[in-house]
């Protein structure tokens, strides 16, 4: 074995391990310099009052954390918005996608085409999606026109003016742009269920609903678990989409956690031109990433137990 040679230090250069390290040198350097270092940087400055000038930074201990846990609730309101977004969007989107996937799974003529078109909005840039939705939902826009024509509403709605309407628009647009990918995931999952199982269940006289809950769902559970995790993480970390559509407006009432952090601390998205208190932002970033990791961990634990129930 080549490995033996490296251990005795005889000839490392040219050995298999040498080539391995060389071939992943770029990601390893990237990991250390652009991932680990920034995380340590965030950790360090979260204990400082820091406006981008190191010589003027002042150690404040846990003050940054204290402030936003006890006084500044805007960050937690953004979490509230994010949870609301996920809790409304996910059940609607997943059940809608499931219905479509079950229908498309019959594999009638032309169904491949339907599936492809449903996925189409997903390949379009979020910026363009935001642009299109802004235009369509504008006060004199086509959506208001259609709703008035069909008699659903009597006067025009200003979708961007209040929280409830802005949220409705955000959720409708978001489902439009991502339901297709869930249809695709679910179809891939359904394809793993053996055809014979359905047939024998039908022979036994099981109803369609019964078949779905007793055969289909348990069998696709492992993939379904992944689909839900992807959807959950995607919904909770929604960022760009909010920035391009409402930019958190009106008055920050539709900000998600990520878009909140961007509009507060990231150049190009901030409201103010001067450098903000970065230490405070670092503290928030740390807490945010801990919350995300906890959600993923709890989800995995909880859903594994669900899987064992079946």
């Amino acid at each position: 074995m080549v490995r033996g040679k490296t251990r005795t230090g005889k000839k490392f250069i040219g050995s298999e391990a040498f080539w391995c390290y060389l071939m992943i040198a770029i990601p390893i350097i990237g990991f250390l310099v652009l991932q680990v270092y920034p995380i340590l940087w965030t950790f360090k400055w979260s204990f400082y009052s820091y406006y981008g000038v190191e010589s003027a930074a002042r150690f404040v201990g846990l003050d940054n954390f204290k402030t936003f846990f006890t006084q500044d609730f805007t960050y937690w309101k953004a979490w509230g918005n994010t949870l609301l977004f996920a809790l409304v969007k996910m059940p609607l989107e997943i059940s809608f996608a499931m219905l479509l996937a079950l229908a498309l799974n019959k594999k009638l003529k032309g169904f491949g085409f339907f599936q492809a078109i449903y996925f189409l909005p997903h390949v379009i840039s979020t910026v363009i999606v935001g642009l299109i939705l802004t235009n369509m939902f504008s006060y004199n826009g086509i959506i208001n026109n259609l709703l008035i024509k069909t008699g659903v509403i009597s006067s025009r709605i200003d979708w961007f003016a209040d929280r409830a309407h802005a949220f409705a628009m955000i959720i409708i647009g978001s489902i439009w742009s991502t339901f297709g990918i869930n249809v695709m995931y679910l179809l891939a999952a359904l394809a793993t269920v053996p055809e014979e199982l359905y047939e024998s269940a039908e022979v036994d006289g099981a109803s369609k609903t019964r078949i779905f809950f007793s055969i289909t769902l348990p069998l696709i559970a492992p993939v379904f678990q992944t689909i839900l995790l992807l959807s959950l993480v995607g919904s909770l970390s929604v960022n760009e989409y909010i920035i391009v559509l409402t930019n958190g407006g009106p008055h920050g009432q539709t900000n998600s956690v990520m878009s909140y952090l961007y509009t507060k601390f990231v150049p190009g998205f901030m409201e103010s031109a001067s450098t903000p208190q970065l230490g405070y932002g670092c503290a928030m970033a740390l807490v945010t990433t801990v919350i995300f990791a906890t959600v993923a961990f709890l989800y995995n634990k909880f859903s594994n137990r669900m899987k064992n129930l079946y």
């Binding site: 991932q35 940087w41 965030t42 993923a296």
Partner: peptide
């Protein structure tokens, strides 16, 4: 593990330093 780290963009300042 990087997939689960979400620092909300503030690390861009560290990237600028690099």
């Amino acid at each position: 593990a990087l997939m689960f780290i979400k620092t909300g963009g503030i690390t861009i300042y560290a990237t600028f330093k690099v």
